[in-house]
């Protein structure tokens, strides 16, 4: 599950960075983007964490 976990962490980072841009640049005037992309980052981090806990059959 290592590749899948890393991919989801990568996705979460992208969403988090975009959320931060919208959150910390108030002149963009679109705080909703920060909320949604930020929530998305959290969701994908949770999913990555779930994957990280899975043990495959040996």
């Amino acid at each position: 599950m290592k590749q899948e976990t890393l991919l989801l962490i990568g996705v979460a980072i992208v969403w988090f960075v975009l959320a931060a841009v919208y959150a910390f640049a108030p002149s963009l005037g679109m705080p909703g983007y920060a909320r949604v992309w930020g929530a998305g980052a959290v969701v994908f981090l949770i999913l990555a964490a779930v994957l990280g806990t899975i043990k495959r059959p040996t």
Binding site: M1, E4, I54, K55, R56, P57
Partner: peptide
């Protein structure tokens, strides 16, 4: 995925 040897 838990039951597959190759995961996903």
């Amino acid at each position: 995925a838990r039951t597959r040897a190759d995961g996903f």
